[in-house]
Each structure stands twice: as C-alpha cells, then as structure tokens.
Amino acid sequence: MKKKIILATLAIIALGAFGYYYVWYGGARNVSAEDAAFSVSSKNIIDEFDSDIEKSNTKYLEKAIAVKGIVSKISPKQIIIDHTIVCDLKESDPSIKQGQPLTLKGRVVGYDDLMGELKLDQCSVVNND
C-alpha cells in the first residue's frame, strides 16, 4: 500500500513539474519568425483603438503586427514610436536613433486607454528606414 502511495505522489509531482515547464517555456512564440498579420502606421492603429477598443482588441490582440512610425524615445530594451506605441525589444539595437522612421514587428499585448498607448512585446526591427 505504501508503494502505491509513493508511486502516486511521484507521478503527481512529475506531472506538476511537466505542466510548470510547459506553461513557462513550452508554448513560447517566435514572433520575429512569423509573418505580420497586419502592417499599419502608428497613427492609424491608435485611431482604431480610440474609436472602438473592443473591435480593435478582437482584430489585433495576440497577433504579430508591423507598425511604422517615428522613434520618440529609446531605452536599452524598449522603443516608443510616436509617443503612443510601446515596444519591448527582444534584443537591443544600438543603430536605432531618436527621430528616425522605423518599422517594428511585435505581438500586441494590450491597449492602455488611459495613457493612449498600445503595448507590444517580442519586438524586432523590420525596416530601419
């Protein structure tokens, strides 16, 4: 009887460890390798979210998109385009300069209607105009 309890406990621990690993590491996407579902300007996508946030969430949320605009702020792992698109970079790129036109591809993770900002993660440079 003790043997069955020990085996059942070990099986539960193994399943729990597998589930934990899969949730954190197994389902990761490589957005830079995906085709962009949409290619938009920063102004157009912000206008869409401002006019109908629910419809825009349905259209863009969790999708890879390419966004074009002017770099307004740079930090090592984040770029802000036109003061409205916040892109978390996968890797920093020292060639990017403030004020330059840029196209970035990333996954839409949400829109902050209070700040009027669209958040993207896993961003990479598509076109360094």
Rank of each mutant, 00 (worst) to 15 (best):
F49Y: 07
A37F: 01
A14S: 04
F49A: 03
V40S: 04
K3S: 14
V31D: 01
K3H: 12
A33G: 00
G16Q: 08
S41W: 03
T9L: 06
K43L: 12
A17M: 12
N30C: 07
A37G: 03
I46D: 01
Y21G: 11
D47T: 06
K2M: 10
Y22M: 10
K43D: 13
N44S: 13
I5H: 08
D35A: 08
A11E: 06
A14R: 02
A8C: 10
A28V: 15
G16W: 09
I13G: 02
K4N: 14
K2T: 10
Y20A: 11
A28Q: 14
I45Y: 01
K3I: 11
S32W: 01
S41C: 08
Y20S: 11
A14E: 03
N30M: 10
S39Q: 10
A17H: 06
E34T: 03
I46V: 12
I5A: 14
Y25M: 11
K43W: 08
I45G: 00
L7A: 15
D47Q: 11
L7E: 07
V23S: 09
I6K: 07
R29V: 09
L15A: 12
W24D: 15
R29M: 09
Y20Q: 11
G27M: 13
R29D: 05
T9V: 09
E48A: 09
S41Q: 08
A8M: 05
Y20H: 13
K2V: 06
S39H: 07
D47K: 06
F18G: 04
I46T: 01
D47M: 08
Y22T: 04
D35T: 12
T9C: 07
N30L: 10
G27A: 12
I6R: 08
S41M: 09
I46K: 01
L15G: 06
A14M: 04
G19E: 14
S32V: 07
I6L: 12
G26H: 05
G16C: 08
D35R: 03
I46A: 04
Y21W: 14
A36I: 03
L10R: 05
Y21A: 14
K43Y: 10
I6T: 13
W24S: 15
W24A: 15
S42N: 00
I45D: 01
A33D: 02
N44I: 06
L15N: 06
L7R: 05
D47N: 13
G26Y: 05
I46R: 01
W24P: 11
A36D: 01
V23F: 09
S41Y: 05
S39T: 13
M1A: 11
R29L: 09
I5C: 09
A28Y: 10
I13P: 02
K3A: 14
A14T: 07
G19P: 04
T9R: 01
A33N: 00
S42Y: 02
A36P: 02
V31L: 00
D35C: 02
K4F: 12
G19K: 15
S32H: 02
K2G: 12
Y21K: 14
G27F: 14
N30K: 09
V40Y: 03
G19D: 12
K3N: 13
S32E: 05
M1Y: 04
M1I: 05
A36Y: 01
S42R: 02
I12M: 10
D35H: 03
A28W: 07
E34D: 08
S41G: 15
I45A: 01
G27Y: 11
G16N: 10
A36L: 02
A33I: 00
